[in-house]
């Protein structure tokens, strides 16, 4: 990316991200739900358990 992007109220300029979101695949050890997690502390979206395993 060169020049900083400019803004306008009606139609903000866009930038392309060089990296897309890279979630990791997890399985919940409580309810078995599989999900793609982001962040330091993955939490099951189904039962909110932190007892999950990367798969």
């Amino acid at each position: 990316m060169g020049e900083p992007p400019m803004c306008s109220a009606g139609g903000p300029a866009d930038i392309e991200f060089s990296e897309r979101v890279k979630g990791k695949d997890y399985k919940c050890n409580e309810c078995g739900e599989r999900f793609k997690g982001l962040g330091r502390k993955p939490v099951c979206p189904g039962c909110q358990s932190e007892d999950v395993t990367e798969v």
Binding site: V21, G23, F35, K36, G37, L38, G39, R40, K41, P42, V43, C44, P45, Q48, E50
Partner: peptide, 19 residues
Amino acid sequence: SGFGLCIEAPDGEYVQGLS
């Protein structure tokens, strides 16, 4: 409180763990 914030994106669902 901590919870899993669901992010519904065009290419699928992501879950951001919030503390």
